[in-house]
Design a protein around this nucleic acid. Structure first.
Length: 804
DNA sequence: CAGTGAGCGAGCTTCCGCTTGACTT
């Protein structure tokens, strides 16, 4: 019987810590917060000094029950939640619920999971810091007040089920404002001049850029004219040493950014994979804002670097966290064992692990040493100079392992350029000089990861909420994550070659977006509404300001109720005033008059999204939904009028009408009550009958090929041809067919084997029907289903989670 | 992987931060 009960936040952590403590210690987890404000109402009694009503969360009732009985048996209870505001509150709630005296109960903390750190912590316990707890209560209550007073306002004035909050509303604002910057951006261009030079013996070619750009084509042309016959020579050669230093180890935010840029993972994907690595004991905790590495980690990294790369590659470094509002309860995200450059696991897990390993190791490596060479080329008759710049790496240092990537993908000149040995004064012949039109870059749209970066900069949100916040603003329909096709533009080029100037126009694609965040109409409308009435909360530094107050509460200098009162009185007045005075808004905008019918054309937000309306509401108006990518803010009268052209009648095919329409999933052709999507390459307003028939026939063909195989003995099982290739459909779930297998040759027995082998890994949710019991007995018989039992079995069983 | 419009009204929606599973809608 253990006489000590230690409670931590995470079960994985509990497992590791238990190993470090003696036999007399039992380590359990609270699984995060165990209580929260009641959700049935506000959960705060405003009349009674903001008295919070805490209740045990539904999913924590069992946890609390177990802890209660363990507490009874234990002599000493140790509250070992994280050392930050939230962790302190968890400890306090535990003390309250488990009926422990918070002024007596032992509270311990550690920042790294090592035997030494934990034993040290046990030696130096303190009690719960009630001031810090109060700071957390203030944080929690403020967020509830803001969220639960603003959201109903939106239901009333804009649309039901919407939401607003200190974090999400500001995140949406960032995206809305960026979009408006892009709308306001006017494209400018200039002419960039580059020259290729070579000496008389043609030993090398030098590529150099002119030190000025020209606004107008005529200027560039005149410059090229001046170059004809000019006598160029090397006027200067300059060499300078440079260096580059590695980036700090990963925090949640930087891991999300790099995994997004380098591996293409979404923020939530990254977190799910990291969670797996953490649970397997391969990395430290993945929700952290700290760049700190423990002493043991630093020396393990040193050992690994010296043995793998040599002593000259090692450089001891200590990093400081600079993120706003960082609480540093954990270490940076790093491998548990530095000597393991790779681990076992799924390809995704392996790649993320390697990224973490490289980043951590590189952070303890030497600077890269470089040499920058700048060569200047000029002619007596020409004022401007050509400059060739090159950089070579003299010592690669940390670059041997890791290079950070940038948000904008436009650094294609990063490649190492080795410049030839060159003498000052050497004559250069002009091989070719080009003046190429260059367009200024518009501001970039946010990707998930760059939004997280921005939020962290502003101190909005925490490592545990970045991913959920992005899901929220997408689920509420404020923001859309998608790809958009680019546009085409002309690029003018002037070329001087053999004393002749020629002009050329080339086409260039630009502005294509991949997995970027776009604001929706509702996102823009809500942002404007909130900004108008609650500018303080929508301010980018609102969180930073209240954080300062929370810190003062944590120091015990003011009471949390006072701080909340000061915030709430004016805030609540604004809410009431807005509720009474502001008129409900659907973002309606009149675009003009339809020249054909003389009726008014307007756009607004309808029940199912943005719509265009032809005619006033009294006279049975015609509606048309806006298309993907169209916004109320920017749609023109002409674009709106086009929407009313649908559905278009193209004529008849096989005696039945052929129509073109635009639906929820984009443009489609309708024929004999069947629908065929129109591909992006076709324009729905220009498509003709002939082409439509082509699409109908193509769809028929695809449909006829859809069913590859069926079996009489088992009608529920089918081999089908889908978007991603052939697959097996069985009982409402789908199973992939190995690439090496010919789907046509599959027998029913083969199919059953495939279904069975994937039943546990891919499909964790087969339809729970009467067949369910049959399926499980079948599984129980099969010998390959160890995984199944551990996954479907109740978690209380200590079936080993070893899968490899 | 499937699918292609919008009446009426009652009842419900919602926050941020800690943590993992559960498994239908």
């Amino acid at each position: 019987m253990q006489e000590n009960l230690v409670i931590v936040e995470s079960p994985a952590k509990a497992k590791t810590i238990e190993k470090f403590l003696g036999e007399s210690f039992l380590v359990k987890s609270s699984y995060g917060h165990i209580r929260d404000l009641s959700k049935k109402n506000l959960g705060i009694d405003i009349e009674h000094n903001f008295l919070p009503e805490y209740i045990i969360s539904d999913d924590k009732i069992k946890v609390v029950q177990e802890l209660r009985s363990l507490v009874k048996k234990a002599k000493t209870v140790w509250l070992a939640s994280d050392e930050d505001r939230e962790g302190e509150a968890i400890a306090w709630h535990l003390a309250e619920v488990l009926e422990l005296d918070p002024t007596q109960t032992k509270r311990i903390v550690f920042h790294e999971i090592t035997k030494e750190a934990i034993q040290n912590a046990i030696k130096t316990p303190r009690t719960v810091d009630l001031n810090l707890v109060n700071a957390q209560q203030a944080r929690r209550i403020l967020d509830r007040l803001v969220g639960f007073e603003l959201s109903p306002l939106l239901w009333k004035k804009v649309k039901p089920s919407l939401s607003a909050g200190r974090v999400q509303s500001v995140a949406v604002r960032l995206i809305v404002e960026r979009e408006r910057e892009i709308m306001a951006f006017t494209q400018t261009s200039n002419f960039r001049v580059t020259g290729q030079f070579e000496p008389n013996n043609k030993e090398y070619t030098l590529k150099a850029e002119l030190d000025r750009r020209f606004e107008e084509k005529e200027q560039a042309h005149k410059f090229l004219e001046r170059c004809i016959g000019a006598s160029f020579s090397i006027s200067n050669v300059d060499k300078k040493p440079g260096k580059r230093s590695p980036a700090a180890p990963f925090t949640t935010s930087t891991l999300q950014q790099e995994a997004g840029r380098k591996l293409g993972y979404s923020v939530s994907q990254t977190m799910t994979i990291a969670q797996k690595l953490y649970e397997a004991g391969l990395i430290t905790y993945m929700r952290t804002d700290s760049v700190n590495l423990s002493d043991t980690a630093i020396s393990a990294a040193e050992k690994a670097i010296k043995s793998m790369y040599g002593a000259e590659y090692h450089n001891h470094r200590q990093y400081r966290t600079k993120a706003k509002g960082a609480q540093e309860a954990h270490e940076a995200i790093r491998p548990t064992y530095m000597e393991n450059a790779t681990v076992e696991g799924t390809p995704q897990e392996r790649r993320l692990y390697e990224l973490i390993w490289k980043r951590t190791i590189a952070s303890q490596m030497s600077d890269a040493l470089t040499e920058k060479t700048t060569i200047t080329i000029g002619a007596p008759s020409i004022e401007e100079k050509f400059v060739a710049a090159g950089e070579i790496v003299k010592f690669d240092g940390f670059l041997k392992v890791y290079k950070e990537s940038a948000d904008d993908e436009s650094n294609e000149d990063e490649a190492e350029v080795l410049l030839p040995p060159i003498k000052v004064g050497e004559h250069q012949n002009t091989k070719e000089i080009n003046a190429v039109q260059r367009f200024a870059q518009r501001p970039p749209r946010y990707a998930e990861s760059s939004l997280v970066k921005k939020m962290e900069e502003l101190g909005i949100g925490r490592p545990s909420t970045y991913a959920p916040t992005i899901s929220t603003i997408i689920n509420r329909g404020y923001v859309i994550k998608e790809d958009r096709a680019g546009f085409e533009r002309n690029i003018e080029t002037l070329t001087l070659k053999k004393d002749k100037i020629t002009e050329k126009v080339a086409k260039e694609n630009y502005g294509a977006e991949k997995a970027k965040l776009f604001p929706s109409d509702i996102g823009m409308l809500v942002t404007d509404f909130l900004s108008e009435h609650f500018s303080n909360i929508m301010n980018y530094d609102f969180t930073a300001k209240v954080e300062k107050d929370f810190d003062i509460i944590a120091e015990g200098k003011i009471k949390w109720e006072e701080m909340i009162r000061k915030f709430y009185s004016p805030f609540h007045k604004d809410v009431e005033l807005t509720m009474e005075t502001s008129t409900p808004t659907k973002g309606e905008k009149v675009l003009g008059v339809d020249p054909k019918t003389g009726k008014t054309v307007s756009v607004r937000i309808g029940r199912f999204g943005p719509i265009a309306q032809l005619g006033s509401s009294e006279e049975e108006p015609v509606y048309a939904g806006l298309q993907k990518g169209q916004l109320i803010e920017t749609i023109t009268l002409e674009e709106a009028l086009k929407l009313f052209e649908f559905p278009r009648n193209l004529g008849e095919y096989e005696g039945k009408a052929v129509q073109v329409g635009i639906g929820r999933f984009g443009p489609y052709v309708k024929h004999a009550s069947k629908y065929v999507s129109i591909p992006k390459t076709d324009s729905p307003s220009e498509i003709n009958l002939e082409r439509a028939i082509e699409l109908i026939e193509a769809k028929r063909k695809a449909d006829s090929e859809k069913v590859i195989k069926t079996f009489n003995e088992e009608p529920e099982l089918q081999v089908l041809n889908g978007r991603f290739g052939p697959y097996i459909a069985f009982n409402g779930a789908n199973y992939k067919i190995p690439k090496t297998t010919d789907p046509k040759a599959l027998t029913l027995e083969d199919c059953r084997t495939i279904v069975e082998s994937q039943a546990t890994t891919v499909k964790a949710k087969p339809r729970a029907k009467a067949t369910g019991s049959k399926a499980t007995t079948a599984k129980a018989k099969a010998s390959t289903t160890k995984k199944a039992s551990s996954k479907t079995a109740a978690p209380k069983k200590t079936t080993t989670k070893k899968t490899k």
